[in-house]
Design a protein around this nucleic acid. Sequence first.
DNA 1: CGTCACCATGTTTACGTCAACACGACGTCA
DNA 2: TGACGTCGTGTTGACGTAAACATGGTGACG
Lengths: 332, 332
Amino acid sequence: MADVAALAGVSTQTVSRVSMGLDNVRPATRDRVLAAMAELGYAPNTAARALRYGSFRTIGVIAHRLARTGESRTVEAVVEAARKEGYTVTLIDVESPSSDVVSAAATRLSHQAIDGLVIIRAETASPDTLALPPRLPVVVSDSRFVGHHPAVGADQADGARSATQHLLDLGHRTVHHVAGPSDSIPAQLRTEAWRTTLDAAGSPVPEVVEGDWTSASGYDAGRRLAADPEVTAVFCANDEMAAGVLRALHEAGRAVPGDVSVVGFDDILLAGYLWPPLTTVAQDFDEIGRRLVARLLQQVRSGEVEDDGDTEDLHEVIPVELLVRQSTAPPR
Amino acid sequence: MADVAALAGVSTQTVSRVSMGLDNVRPATRDRVLAAMAELGYAPNTAARALRYGSFRTIGVIAHRLARTGESRTVEAVVEAARKEGYTVTLIDVESPSSDVVSAAATRLSHQAIDGLVIIRAETASPDTLALPPRLPVVVSDSRFVGHHPAVGADQADGARSATQHLLDLGHRTVHHVAGPSDSIPAQLRTEAWRTTLDAAGSPVPEVVEGDWTSASGYDAGRRLAADPEVTAVFCANDEMAAGVLRALHEAGRAVPGDVSVVGFDDILLAGYLWPPLTTVAQDFDEIGRRLVARLLQQVRSGEVEDDGDTEDLHEVIPVELLVRQSTAPPR
DNA sequence: CGTCACCATGTTTACGTCAACACGACGTCA
DNA sequence: TGACGTCGTGTTGACGTAAACATGGTGACG
């Protein structure tokens, strides 16, 4: 900046005025400064600006297994929403969703330049053992933090309910369930709603087969289910596991949806192109991302950190939609 | 920091020493300072540190359609590799890979706090029209920038070649091809290698069916191919399109791999759980991410920006591997 | 018992930017 | 013609941190 000022024959303050686009600079002077900037390849120093303003216009995002499932969709939506607000996103991908790892990530991020933090599915982290930097605005997606921090999440229960009910309505006697890991909150919510729906319909509640969200675990679960001729309908806690179940059923020679109907959860991009195209519960990841950012920036701007207070209205639930494709049909 | 110093009864410099973990502080003093930090919830100000050091220990990543394909895998790997080097990642997801959009993103990022820039698959952007900030270290993944900036990418040609050769070796007379968009460099490379391989084998070169990387476009392509009884082998430029092709073949009643063999590219997480499990070319996204970060940090640390010089060894090629699953077989 | 080295800690300064204020030149109006 | 705004530009200081240098006290050693 000093170089630019010297070259243009003005003070640094005038350079600053030009680079900020203020209009109280004489056009001739402005041109000289702009020319000097171009010649020297000057760009304002972000660190100094951030120091001056006390803000980076950046939010941090902690995600787990970015390459999977709705994670990347949510991150994409958060990035997009942040961009529209003039914020950039700094990303950390943790290998494990446990408290200490997430804590470490949050601490590391807060030492970086962020104005607020979005935690996406810190599934197994507990709010009690999670040490977050004080005074840092935080929002979370589905997780155990609901009630401790402002949260935005899909309507897990309604999704699981409508998936299960859809299968019951088709005439299935009951619905088997391939669950997510039992320490995951969304997995718990989905399993719980599935159970409740079966109970309400007076259907027997089969034993849960637990997976770990991966297709491989779904495949294992599917092999077990395929061996049981009683199984005519399966609700999987996510689409990846559903894909594994489909493969296992195909291999066992059980027709889908002729012999067994399958429903997934998430509506991943490939869901409509599995064979058969998968009936699933679509989460509105875009809306979740937008609302996460909106809630976070609200805190950032007000300088207030919402917590522990009104636990109820801190949790925002985004509706889901059951997409009926071709993997479900009445039982034979 | 001043508050902490006052509370602990020391100077700010001593606080700085403690927060940097230097050892020339008397234990008793250190404890007082640490206690004061804890009481006041002190955390060092990143902006000030960055200003002081002239570095943010942050790299920028520009990606296109983060939720898709290898994008998220590469980003995940970059984030991971950066973390191991003590760097964080700031992410921008552009809606379009065209020059002006990528330029704008790069400019915006460079006004943010980054020490270097990774561009992942700016497929249709041209290096001539892309205005990047001067003196900003840059590395790119597959793209038209190869030869202009240091680049790391999978061995597209070898992948396409081995996929095509695998099908020929099985006894297929020729191999049809569902290509990526023609303005994408990786798509061009894959198509080119497919053509060369067929030529070398003396096989006829069927007309290319062009898709846009999505499953939907693969489905459309698949419907056309399924209608042609001559088609016995299809090489798809990515796994998503392959999934679409599989669905179209299933719907048309053509058995895979009995009637038609299908090969994909990328080895997405679901590839092994499509029906039938998809033979595909696995890219080592982890290695690509690691090498991208390594090459970038090398520039960051040396303060040198590699460009326009030795165009050859600037391009690092990562080997790929053909994973033979169950979607390929000899023709009937 | 004086010299000197060393250690813990304090003081000064610079990093780049921008808000607040200061200043001088010019024009306006009584 | 002098008092007074206005406009363009320069000067000063502050943001929080850490390197470089300064200081004072302690102990070792001849």
